[in-house]
């Protein structure tokens, strides 16, 4: 049975909490819940609360859907919850937090790779003629 979004995980008041993904898809079909839980718990253990979802596969309109329960996210951030890197990246993209530096790094690397590929293609076509 699915646990309610309010969660069933037990936690200590002063323990370290973290907002992170919990994988809920099946084989070859990833789907993530954004959850808040105690840091030391494993991914499949009951969580304190679900804060949103993330569907990493694009839909027919080439969109990746993210849902965020902003009210609860801000509450848990106010309680001092940590944020895992992938979730931090999403929050950065959504404009909730400043953009994570790794996002800029990946973007720059991807752009550079595309440039290099284009250059190689140019060189190949030049050598052929």
């Amino acid at each position: 049975m699915l646990s309610p979004a309010s969660g069933t995980g037990r936690f200590y008041r002063k323990s370290a909490k973290i907002i992170r993904f919990a994988r809920h898809g099946c084989a070859n079909r990833p789907f993530f819940h954004i959850v808040v839980t105690e840091r030391r718990r494993t991914q499949k253990m009951p969580v304190i609360e679900q804060l949103g979802t993330f569907d990493p596969l694009e839909n027919e309109h080439n969109e990746k859907l993210v849902s965020l329960n902003l009210e609860r996210i801000i509450y848990w951030m106010g309680c001092g919850a940590h944020i895992s890197r992938p979730v931090d990246q999403l929050f950065g993209l959504s404009g909730l937090l400043p953009i994570h530096p790794t996002l800029y790094m990946t973007a720059w690397r991807n752009r550079k790779e595309i440039e290099n590929q284009a250059k190689e293609e140019n060189n190949e076509s030049a050598t052929k003629t």
Binding site: E58, H61, N62, E63, K64, L65, V66, S67, L68, N69, L70, L90, L93, S94, G95, L103, T106, A107, W108, N110, R111, I114
Partner: peptide, 11 residues
């Protein structure tokens, strides 16, 4: 260049 898809965020 980060991603080719659009990210949609819903509150």
């Amino acid at each position: 260049g980060y991603d080719a898809a659009t990210y949609i965020f819903t509150d």
